[in-house]
Write a protein that binds this DNA or RNA. Sequence first.
DNA 1: CTTATAATGATAATCATTTTCAATAATATA
DNA 2: TATATTATTGAAAATGATTATCATTATAAG
Lengths: 159, 159
Amino acid sequence: MQGRWGGGPAKWWHGEFRGCGYRITIPRQIILQVLDESKEHLSAEDIYLKVHNIYPAIGLTTVYRTLELLINMGLVFKFDFGDGRARYELSRGAKEPSHHHHLICTKCGRIIDYTDFVDEELELIKKTEKELSKKYNFEIKNHTIQFYGLCDECSDKEK
Amino acid sequence: MQGRWGGGPAKWWHGEFRGCGYRITIPRQIILQVLDESKEHLSAEDIYLKVHNIYPAIGLTTVYRTLELLINMGLVFKFDFGDGRARYELSRGAKEPSHHHHLICTKCGRIIDYTDFVDEELELIKKTEKELSKKYNFEIKNHTIQFYGLCDECSDKEK
DNA sequence: CTTATAATGATAATCATTTTCAATAATATA
DNA sequence: TATATTATTGAAAATGATTATCATTATAAG
């Protein structure tokens, strides 16, 4: 089926799929499109609903399966912010600065991205990674840094 | 009931409970005891089973409820290592250096604590926390740093 | 166009965590 | 110490996210 969906220009990730022997399907294309267009921290269901608007035949199962695939390919990061559902983000955003961390409000669940101090931080992380991988013989693939606390509004409400 | 269980010396956390208006009960005492005696990263069920050995009347529900209470009191940290179940650790361990981070093997689930670089790290974290709380008006309570990758053994197996 | 098979989606199953609610136990008070 | 108050407990059922099953469908190669 090459009509309403498959027609656009080949995307950067087509090669990655082919290289891994994976097929390029409409659900996969739209899931990637949705991830690429969203700056937010989407849950599987968020993604399902957004894809569903574009391609109503999508199944939730396929969303989960595709996300797992993308995680294994290194195209997507999975996060847990402690509210019982996982969140997913494209690892190399086309737009924003890709490397960022999260401030998580433990009251309302709001998530703030920040990119401040990433340079200094990355320096420490790199150094740490190097030493830790040596000491524990542990092959580090990636890391997360998260700050938990109360956001602006929730902090006010407490008073 | 002051016989088989409640008899020991008053613990450091009794005051905290009283101060919050919480009752000191046998299940709570034993859950804290189990957390204190374990160096591991216990899931709710792990804790349930260990408590069950000492106090078979315990219910899983009580474990979950007590853990939530302890988290809110700041006595316990909750972690998510990506395997679908939460892990719990006493925040101020009586024994080991309390502040540490985790290396998580994404293949076998092994978790390695490390305390290396904590000083340098804490310095950066403190600085970051200060600036972030100013910039975003976000009241930071705590943070997590986790490294994901392959442990010694799993790394070997891949080859 | 045909074929082989990877991928899909509806459904059911799983499993950690929460909710409900009557029974019980911890504390304050008499 | 006995009693009243009410926080806490535990069994069972409910919830909700994620995963497994399996017949059907669509992709990519020839």
